[in-house]
């Protein structure tokens, strides 16, 4: 098994909003523990509004108000040493970005500067991290990189509005891989793309991961995509990871009722029956339910579920689940 490359301990990140004197706290990430390994694709799944994107921001160290770090720590394994990213100076964190960890944003429709050519965007990212290169050398680097990933070299001369949505997404993924980072964080890279384009984008991402041998943290609510790409999956619910296991385990033997619903809502060949989805709607992150946050929607609720948040049980090796049904209550 590979070593751990990114570790989160009891991570809590809340949005603290101050509206007309009333403080509202959105508990988007509430006590997340993660150990992500080298050379794996770690998928994070869960329905909209469960804190997936916020978790990524926190893992990336991008805490801009109103998002605040309330507690916990995040470590990167850099050159054999654990680095606590929240204790770094802004400059040091900036240096880690793109060279060590990069980010594929949600909705790459608007993440490229509309008034400059793609090659200029590449140049800006390169120039800010690579020293002592001339303009031509930098463009040459960008060209080689694009060609190596099998994208048409003409995209560099295009403006963002001249590219299709799929191509734009591929351009941003290639941009994130530009400096061969050890970790790439991808936030819903396939959302808003049609299925055929989705496949190309996923293959590109997977291809990069295989050739660089790095780690990808992939957030998507699309369980189909997760099944195709991820090695391990963490299921997120109401700001917490509720189940974590290898992809085979999650799909073959889902233990948390919420995971069960997520997987059961997927269509299957030959099965024409109605797909059953999770009853109810996602809980409020401002006033999360007491105890296990899933208990109001859970068909197997026990009294203890309403009172106490379950801790992780490991009924099968390397398969962790936070549910009272799995252990003594």
């Amino acid at each position: 098994m590979n070593g751990t490359i990114l570790r989160a301990e009891q991570l809590q990140a809340f949005y603290v909003l101050d509206m007309f004197g009333t403080r509202r706290v959105v508990k988007a990430v509430n006590g997340v523990n993660l150990e992500i390994r080298e050379n794996e694709v770690y998928g994070i799944a869960g329905e909209s509004g469960c804190g997936k994107t916020t978790l990524l921001k926190a893992l990336y160290g991008a805490m801009d108000p109103p998002l605040r770090l309330i507690g916990g720590r995040v470590f990167y394994r850099v050159n054999g040493q654990d680095v606590d990213i929240f204790s770094l100076r802004p400059n040091e964190l900036k240096q880690l970005r793109w060279e060590y960890i990069s980010y594929v944003p949600q909705g790459s429709m608007s993440v490229l500067n509309p008034v400059i050519k793609i090659k200029e965007t590449y140049r800006d990212f390169l120039e800010s991290h690579v020293r002592g290169k001339t303009r031509d050398e930098i463009f040459e680097m960008a060209k080689e990189h694009i060609a190596a990933l099998g994208l048409p070299p003409t995209v560099l001369e295009a403006y963002p509005h001249q590219l299709s949505g799929g191509m734009r997404q591929r351009v941003t993924i290639a941009l994130a891989a530009l400096l061969k980072p050890r970790i790439m964080i991808a936030d819903e890279p396939t959302t808003a793309l049609d299925v055929v384009v989705q496949r190309g984008v996923i293959q590109l991402l997977k291809g990069i991961q295989e050739s660089l041998g790095n780690t990808i943290i992939l957030v998507t609510h699309d369980m189909g995509v997760q099944a195709n790409v991820a090695d391990r999956i963490g299921i997120m619910y109401a700001g917490r990871i509720v189940e974590e296991a290898s992809v085979e385990e999650i799909f073959g033997n889902p233990l948390h009722p919420y995971t069960w619903y997520l997987i059961n809502s997927l269509p299957r060949f030959g099965d024409k029956g109605m797909r059953e989805s999770v009853p109810g709607s996602p809980p409020s992150l401002i006033t999360p339910p007491s105890g296990c946050p899933f208990h109001p929607r859970c068909p197997h609720t026990r009294p203890i579920c309403r009172e106490q948040m379950p801790s992780f049980f490991e009924p099968v090796a390397h398969h962790k689940v936070a549910c009272w049904l799995m252990g003594e209550g």
């Binding site: 991008a62 900036k94 970005r97 980010y103 944003p105 993440v111 500067n113 990212f125 800010s128 991290h129």
Partner: peptide, 15 residues
């Protein structure tokens, strides 16, 4: 988004 993204990418502030 494109400004936020460039910031996340560690692009120099002057740029």
């Amino acid at each position: 988004s494109f400004v936020q993204y460039a910031k996340l990418g560690g692009v120099k502030e002057s740029i």
